[in-house]
Amino acid sequence: MRQYINMLVFVVILGSVVSFLLVGADLLTKDRIARNDEALLKSSILDAYDISYSFNTVFERFDETVEEVVIENTTFYIDKETSRVSYIFKGSGVWGPIQAIMTLEADFKTIVSISILAQEETPGLGGVLAEAWYLEKYSGTVLSDQSPYIIIRHGNEDNLPNEVDAITGGTRTSEAFMKMVNETYPMYKTLFESRGN
């Protein structure tokens, strides 16, 4: 009996010590991590608008050139010069959540670029989703007016304006990503169009 009590006491003490360490480390790094995430988001948006910036000027350049519009708790980012619009959309991939930025031309139909903020797909297969050369395929794609807005598919035939090649060896990731875009796009579109009213 005594032995079990000792064990229990030990586990409780160990638990408190490591929790203390972790809370401390979290307090020390939390602000910087949040700032890094923000810098990643802002630099991705600046990249989509072809605005040059350096590591130290991300925040200033962003404030100068980008307008943030909040409609019903959803933030849209608008390039002051070209009126390109960006929004952040989320969904689930094969292994975990995917978070990405969609940048569209002022018509809210033509894709300028898509960049991935977070993903946990299989490296080398589905993970290709986050690689620049693959994401380039999306630029110039025109989302159609009704569902399905975008089609991500395999095959050799020429792509229609709203079709993009799927990832070889990452079929399920491609499907998940297609679902994500198709489910979120109409929502953001309605929101954005209600802006003037």
Binding site: L14, L22, D26, T29, R32, I33, N36
Partner: peptide, 19 residues
């Protein structure tokens, strides 16, 4: 428990200073 604590601390440090 001990090992994972230190690994998480290292991960936080990298995220904060070497993203």
């Amino acid at each position: 428990v001990v090992i994972s604590t230190f690994v998480i601390m290292f991960q936080m440090f990298l995220d904060a200073y070497f993203p």
